[in-house]
Write a protein that binds this DNA or RNA. Structure first.
Lengths: 142, 142
DNA sequence: GTAATATATTTAGTATGCTAAATATATTAC
DNA sequence: GTAATATATTTAGCATACTAAATATATTAC
């Protein structure tokens, strides 16, 4: 069991994602962001100003308390602000501040750099094959 | 940039690893373990009884404070115990309890189940190709 | 032998991420 | 209109995981 193919694939995948996360986390610290916050902001950058926390849960595929914490941190650091919906008092709507909006370009640059590093030695043909296989795995998982 | 190949691969990889972690976390809760603790224990199962925390850092590829916390939790739950090295008082050596040793079989079973699910629809040929590409990516990253 | 440096671990404080339970507001059923 | 149910968010408490700083012990330089 120890050294077979399946085991190796799962473990390698684990190591890649952990290492990717660490590197990426470090890169984002230069922008005063924590890893994951960029994903939340990206939902707002693509014209999603006024989105609810439930919509962010859906987008980030995480649970409501996680979004509560992320949103609190981002608000405290001045990247977003929240307004209670006037028709449904249960709902908080999230908006970008100017400072949050300004992060789009530098974060996109970090994304590109990270991707470049990740796929550095993979040839174009292999890239599309890799994507196909990963998508297949994703489908099996969900 | 938004929908190109590279971006897709990074994001898909992210989603797979997050989903895998969630599923796996749930499965491990039945054994009173948290995700990651199984990896620490596996280092001990493979004849590594008496290992130091620094060696666990190396194995788990994480920082010393993380190991301190994991080890504290595992000790409190009775899976391991710690003894101060008699020659070097800075070093703590980690040992499995009987309860910790008993977890090897059920955890291995969970691993197999998770791997099976992950690679369910990937053909053997594609599996070795996939592994090759993942290893290549890992090399680029480190 | 003492001072400076290196190593191993812990503490404090931050984040993401979870579950379970509490709270507040809306909607539905009667 | 009231009671029961559903939805959105928060709180509390747990985990992994990080950095920076503190602590304790060893080793090296002199």
């Amino acid at each position: 069991m120890k050294n077979n193919l399946e085991c190796d694939i799962r473990q390698t995948l684990d190591r890649i994602s952990a290492k990717m996360r660490r590197d990426y986390s470090e890169a984002l610290r230069e922008l005063n962001l924590y890893v994951g916050q960029d994903n939340l902001l990206s939902r707002l950058w693509l014209g999603g100003d006024g989105v609810t926390q439930m919509q962010l849960c859906e987008y980030l595929k995480c649970e409501p308390p996680t979004v509560t914490n992320m949103v609190r941190s981002l608000e405290q650091n001045g990247f977003i602000y929240r307004i209670k919906d006037k028709d449904d008092a249960r709902i908080m709507r999230i908006f970008l501040t100017e400072r949050g909006r300004e992060l789009e370009a530098p974060v996109t640059l970090k994304w590109e750099q990270q991707q470049k590093k990740l796929l550095h030695s993979i040839l174009p043909n292999d890239r599309s094959l890799l994507r196909k296989l990963l998508k297949q795995m994703e489908n099996d998982l969900f």
